[in-house]
Design a protein around this nucleic acid. Structure first.
Lengths: 333, 333
DNA sequence: TTGAAAGCGGTACCAA
DNA sequence: TTGGTACCGCTTTCAA
């Protein structure tokens, strides 16, 4: 009996109209604060609506005045501070447009990503975010929705993609390390994909440009723990390494911790430079040097492109869809 | 000329139908993979839809099959790691229900909060989150929407509220400090509201229970910098303080930094215990002792209550809507 | 297998 | 100031 009593149908504008003894449009007027309605009538309608617990259907309303825009923001892991920053920036940019943002955390899982992509198409006007699946699949699942990919190499021009250009920043980082006297520089790359990351390519190019031998590379999970164990492995196999560049700041922070545990003083015995420019990097000891990205700019750019795609006003070109990274020296390297 | 060419009206199911030479319901069938349709017809429709760039209106669709549920998650500052954790937990819980989540960051501003509340009602089926405005105002703006308030004392029973009970945890923290020999324990409260926080009340009760004099209190902004300057002020005015309890972990981390700068070794010269139990606390040096909250449980509980409110299946009672905090000793105190 | 018609719950435009 | 009517874009029911 407990759950059967609440078997109530939705309260519609019609119910309110009947209850107040007026027509539907009068109810509409009362609720939307239009003029052209008698004060007492309005009050009566409002009372009826309240008594009935009436709430207008967002679908019906959206159908007739198609003004609200919603975008889907897809993030692999909201707890990763980098994505948190991007998400916050995107939220802010969307708010400036008056848009609503539906956030989906795919938990770094291709399966969740698929599920998200599947349901998202019917809920939003555009999609922005990080994806691991192929463009073909994304295309199939989003069916013509404007999509803005972040930090991905564009294989076709079906989608917009925000490219992260860290080449110069990484070069500056390596040059800096070399000037400090480092000759054996390793890298902690991320372990997500099969191939080495683009950041690794920048690293390799930079060391080569400095005339160094190719440094040793170790794969790390994208977590503090991942960074810790990766650094341990790297140093165990290559004790001569005096500096490391990491795929991102999270991994770098792990490296910092591992270094301390191993009794290596940073930056004296080991220099560490990360990538991303997280605020978090200023809180650790020593503060983390990093190749910093403008995460706010990134989020804003992604939303801006979505806006242009949506309005059909000349979208940004690939040349403009770039966020550059620059070396930010603190104390770790 | 550039922008005028794209003045296109929305492509509707009707356009597709005409283009494919079929009726609208046939288009619907083709797109929704219903049976009862000839293979070739289906293909023709699909082709036409693709060519026209057709995408079904989510409003029209939602109107007829009212199955998707969306909740609004309102957060004061997504970049504050505590709220990030709560948001991530809520997202996860919502996903388990198959719900969509619209996230709003009110930037700690009562004005933004008002704006959010205003637009949110027409977009979601329920609201969950942090609010600073009075229940009257929230009520007025949400008009009957189910609302779950987090970390707020309930003044009426118009809303559900998740209460955070840190009394025992704080008592344990203070007891621990006293056992360590501390006699003069200060607090860094937050500076947001006019009155002292509930956490301060717990602190005061705990020190009193331990037979201590009332410790000095200093207000701090909810940021690392806020914690830094607050600790400096506190120690300048009360140099005899040997331990501090803080409103939250962020402030505590600021205190840690300030202590280092002041040459006070933690925990030897100054013990610090925070509140929240952020993961971040494990990354700082020394790792932060804290009165920890189960943030995942918090997010899940909030969403669970929203679900019950929505389905009308017996909502959780105030007694059940509580998240308790417990002392988690690491190294800072 | 296909199409016609009737809504879903609102709002806008008109006439009363 | 009010109500009638049409219609937003889609899906469902029922008949052809």
């Amino acid at each position: 009996m407990a759950s059967s009593g609440t078997e109530s149908r939705r309260v519609t504008i019609h119910d309110v109209a009947r209850s107040a003894g007026v027509s539907r449009q009068t109810v509409s007027r009362a609720l939307n604060n239009k003029g052209e309605i008698h004060g007492s009538t309005k009050q009566r309608v409002l009372d009826a609506a309240l008594a009935l617990g009436y709430r207008p259907s967002r679908f019906a309303r959206g159908l007739v005045r198609q003004d609200t825009i919603s975008v889907g923001l897809v993030i692999p892991d909201l707890l990763n501070p980098f994505f948190t920053e991007v998400a916050a920036a995107a939220l802010e940019a969307a708010r400036a447009h008056g848009w609503h943002v539906l956030v989906y955390d795919t938990a770094d899982s291709a399966e969740e990503e698929r599920g998200t992509l599947q349901v998202i198409a019917s809920q939003v006007d555009a999609v922005v975010g990080y994806f691991s699946r192929s463009e073909d699949e994304i295309e199939k699942l989003t069916r013509g929705l404007p999509v803005v990919l972040i930090d991905r190499e564009r294989r076709s021009d079906r989608f917009s993609a925000i490219r992260i250009d860290g080449e110069a920043g990484v070069q500056a980082a390596i040059t800096h390390l070399v000037e400090k006297g480092h000759r054996r520089i390793g890298m902690l790359d991320h372990a997500g994909r099969a191939e080495p990351s683009v950041r690794h390519a920048w690293f390799a190019a930079a060391t080569a440009a400095c005339g160094l031998d190719e440094g040793p590379v170790c794969r790390a999970d994208q977590s503090v723990e991942g960074g810790e164990s990766a650094l341990e492995t790297l140093l165990a196999e290559h004790p001569d390494v005096t500096a490391v560049f990491t795929f991102n700041d999270i991994i770098a922070i792990g490296a910092l911790r591992a270094a301390r545990r191993l009794g290596r003083s940073v930056p004296r015995d080991l220099a560490v430079i990360g990538f991303d420019g997280l605020r978090l990097g200023t809180l650790v000891e020593p503060p983390l040097s990093t190749v910093a990205l403008d995460t706010r700019g990134l989020g804003a750019l992604a939303v801006e492109q979505a806006a242009r795609l949506l309005t059909g006003s000349g979208p940004l070109t690939p040349d403009e869809l770039v966020v550059r990274a620059e070396l930010r020296l603190r104390e770790s390297g």
